[in-house]
Write a protein that binds this DNA or RNA. Structure first.
Lengths: 151, 151
DNA sequence: GTTGAACATCTTAGCCGCTAAGACAATTGG
DNA sequence: CCAATTGTCTTAGCGGCTAAGATGTTCAAC
């Protein structure tokens, strides 16, 4: 951007930090509501978002935990009925983590409130405006991932 | 919203979750880069974002930690040179937590990369589009806070 | 002023999760 | 086949968190 006013950038920076802080609070609240630690909630979120079956080792990578810690995470989640261990039939060393319940049941009311919140927000915009917002979100996600996370 | 297509809502829901996951990863990365635990990084972020002086007790509320845990957090952050303890002259029971360094120094390159990422994204939009996006962000933050966090 | 209650932070004991290292089981390559 | 590799689990030890109580400070009532 060439002609970006400093104040504009400052405002958007504030929005980003605010969103960031709210996200952290949200995850904390969800974890508390589910009776899980932040770590366990983070892991079940990763498991739900994963495409295809997720191995214990891959979960360790994604979460940044040691494999030993992941064993404990899966133990607790399995015991609480959120996931199930399945031995991979093609490679019996591997343990696949299968989430056994859906989004809404899992996150309960909090998740539904977030969804309603999104619907309410989007309702304030017309189709053309939604297209702009969607383009922004796509770009933001892709750019942030490429420049900040995957490096 | 009345005429919201289910697919549109689904797409936006995905964006939200993606943003959410990236945010968690970002915080994890920042903490690792600074040699801090996730808890400590969360606390220093809260301290930086607070308006005016922040007491140890208030930090406990905001972070959801016990006061004893906050004592430890401040100990570590103070020892690492990120914050400073200042007795409140008007109420000497209170301990004010003062962040002693600026954003960029603190978060270092990662923070600067996030900033550059934002600049790059915003550069793809014209003034009128930026206004739509800004309105969206303001609404999203306010609505999410009101309906999901502050309840 | 003095006293007692409320308040803010710190300290401590005990618990629990995390890391690191190694054990065990399964797979792969030569 | 055998050795090396891979994937998960186990264990010991460390460190942060909670809860309860100690310490120091303020405030209101008298």
């Amino acid at each position: 951007m060439f002609n970006m006013e400093p104040e504009v950038l400052e405002r958007f920076t504030w929005y980003m930090r605010e969103q960031s802080a709210l996200t952290v609070m949200f995850h904390t609240k969800v974890a508390a509501r589910m009776g899980l630690s932040a770590t366990d909630e983070k892991c079940i979120d990763l498991a739900m978002r994963a495409e295809g079956p997720l191995t214990a080792g891959r979960l360790a990578e994604l979460s940044g935990l040691s494999t030993g810690a992941v064993t404990g995470v899966i133990d607790r989640l399995e015991h609480a009925g959120f996931v199930r261990r399945v031995r991979d039939p093609h490679d019996r060393r591997k343990v696949l983590v299968e989430v056994t319940i859906g989004d809404v049941e899992k996150f309960g009311q909090l998740f539904e409130e977030a969804r309603q919140s999104l619907i309410e927000v989007l309702g304030h915009f017309g189709d053309d405006e939604l297209q702009v917002i969607e383009r922004y979100l796509q770009l933001q996600i892709a750019t942030f991932r490429a420049r900040v996370i995957d490096t």
